[in-house]
């Protein structure tokens, strides 16, 4: 009986907080890393081991990873710049702008990111001629644009959802004070909605950052391309695990704090209402 009562004692850890708050997660990833290094080391008594490989290739891979980060920042900027007005159009009073923006949003939200990326890479020319001016369109710029399309559609949905989550009486109160529609959105609805947009927006950014490795498939030198090149140039397939894990860790170290911050923000919103 005593055993049972011990077993039935309520756990104190709140269930929702557990997965992210658990300090074991980063520790576990680090252990897996060490283990894979050890595994690769075991098979390489004479030739240079995985530590050497990481020391040798690490800076290059890190450089490639920084390019992923740059791509994510640029795509997020372009995607937000396109998506925010799109989201405003989703709640426009006119049926036509609402319909068009809805179709655009749904199309880009429900298409595979990689396919969109392919489309933009191969449909856009390598340079644009606008009134006698030639604008070069390098591959990285096309890749940024390709990734920013699904981002824009997702941002539009975030904006629409947050705007619509502001209770209707706020609109009535603004209308009663003779605010126009755009003024109402700019001065009253948007400032309240932005707080609610931030967590899903940060979440989208973390997803985008991880998705930037897709650009290696269309031939851009990012962290993943360089990692693959490093593995094949050494002709050491057993280096795959530590080197890929090194890349994974870079992404993890970058994205995990974003996930934590998102969660913290969400909790603060819950408290403040």
């Amino acid at each position: 009986m005593t055993h049972l009562s011990v077993l039935c004692k309520p756990r104190r850890l709140p269930a929702i907080r557990a997965p992210l708050a658990w300090p074991g997660l980063p520790v576990g990833v680090a252990l897996a890393f060490v283990a894979s290094v050890a595994w690769a080391q075991a098979g390489a008594a004479v030739r240079p081991g995985p530590i050497e490989a990481i020391l040798r290739w690490g800076p290059l891979i890190f450089g490639g990873f920084l390019f992923n980060v740059l791509t994510s920042v640029l795509s997020m900027t372009v995607g937000t710049a396109l998506g925010a007005p799109l989201g405003l159009l989703l709640i426009a009073p006119g049926r036509l702008p609402r319909g068009i923006s809805w179709a655009v949003t749904q199309f880009f939200r429900n298409a595979p990111w990689l396919v969109l990326l392919f489309y933009v890479m191969f449909l856009l020319p390598f340079e644009l001629h606008v009134g006698g001016v030639t604008i070069p369109l390098p591959d990285w710029a096309k890749a940024v644009l390709g990734l920013s399309l699904p981002v824009a559609a997702n941002v539009a949905e975030i904006v629409r959802g947050a705007l619509q989550s502001i209770p209707e009486p706020q609109w009535s109160a603004a209308a009663g004070l003779a605010f126009g529609r755009l003024q109402t959105i700019r001065l009253i609805i948007l400032p309240q909605a932005i707080r609610r947009m931030l967590p899903p927006w940060m979440n989208l950014y973390a997803i985008l950052t991880m998705a930037t490795t897709l650009i290696s498939i269309v031939g851009i030198q990012d962290g993943l391309t360089i990692t693959r090149a490093a593995i094949s140039s050494d002709a050491r397939p057993e280096m795959m695990l530590p080197l890929y894990l090194f890349l994974l860790l870079l992404f993890f170290v970058y994205c995990y704090p974003i996930a934590r911050a998102t969660l913290a923000l969400e909790r603060r919103l819950l408290v403040r209402g």
């Binding site: 009486p169 009535s172 109160a173 603004a174 209308a175 009663g176 003779a178 009253i188």
Partner: peptide, 15 residues
Amino acid sequence: RRDVGIVFQQYNLFP
């Protein structure tokens, strides 16, 4: 609406 003020049951101040 500039000439007609309105006050609501739920106040509806801008929080």
